[in-house]
């Protein structure tokens, strides 16, 4: 099989006595959706934050496209093509949806140290940003301040930003949260198509979405990966059933 795009190996992170990430190794191969599931507090977001660079791991390595990420800043990792969304959506609240996405476009185009040309008349920024919003179905809401949009819509903006970044891997932290059933369905279809563009490391609580989308699933419990496998393998895994799904089934 092809080399993994993202390879996490032997990653550990403790907060005081709590082992938030305990010797985690997992990878993301081209074209796949790798779902990361686990009960609340299992350390899923902590893991995503270490990959994205907002948290520093204690030990272990994260390689992206064959290059070590440890030591790089959040911004440097993003520029290398790691596009992430947040568990609690994180946008510039005074800016419109469009301007939030334009920020990603301007980053991709190189320099933010341009001082004179007005961005709102800069079609080289606006067009790609609108295209990304179009793809997530938010083009008609592009000019509203993000603070006035719904939770679900803000998640879509985050995905549009990751798209506009031309990301070569997506880290999506619970993209379905706060969406109605119809929204989840649409997003599931969208992500299904997205994997052809770049692989997705998907943290998600919505099991229907996970089972529908994932090529592989890793189960995280108390910071440890207790199992990795296909949907069927994970469904059948006795340890997973005991630790996570409950034993009654």
């Amino acid at each position: 099989m092809a080399d993994p795009v993202l390879a996490i190996s032997e990653l550990s992170k403790t907060f005081g006595a709590l082992k938030a990430t305990d010797d985690v190794s997992l990878d993301l191969k081209p074209g796949e959706i790798h779902a990361l599931i686990g009960p609340n507090g299992a350390g899923k977001s902590t893991l995503i934050n270490q990959v994205a660079g907002t948290l520093k791991p204690d030990t272990g390595s994260i390689r992206f496209d064959g290059q070590e990420l440890t030591g790089l800043t959040v911004a440097e990792r993003a520029r290398r093509g790691l596009g992430r969304t947040f568990q609690v959506s994180s946008l510039a609240p005074e800016f419109s949806a469009l301007r939030n996405v334009m920020l990603a476009v301007q980053s991709v185009q190189g320099s933010s140290f341009r001082f004179f040309r007005p961005v709102m008349r800069d079609t080289s920024l606006i067009e790609p940003a609108m295209a990304a919003l179009e793809r997530v179905g938010l083009a008609d809401r592009a000019h509203l301040p993000t603070s006035e949009l719904s939770h679900g819509e803000r998640r879509q903006i985050e995905i549009a930003i990751a798209l506009a970044l031309g990301s070569r891997a997506f880290l999506l932290d619970e993209p379905m949260a706060g969406m109605g059933p119809e929204g989840s369905k649409k997003l599931t279809d969208f992500l299904d198509g997205l994997r052809a563009e770049a692989p997705i490391l998907l943290v998600e609580h919505d099991m229907n979405a996970v089972f529908a989308l994932a090529d592989r699933i890793s189960v995280l419990v108390y910071g440890r990966v207790i199992a990795t496998g296909t949907v069927d393998e994970i469904r059948a895994d006795p340890e997973v059933r005991r630790a996570y799904l409950g034993d009654e089934a």
Binding site: A78, A92, F95
Partner: peptide
């Protein structure tokens, strides 16, 4: 300008700015 957009976004949400690179 682009710089101004980045600067104002930094005020609103530093993590967001870093996450777009």
């Amino acid at each position: 300008s682009r710089f101004g957009a980045a600067l104002q976004a930094t005020r609103q949400n530093e993590v967001r700015v870093a996450s777009v690179g």
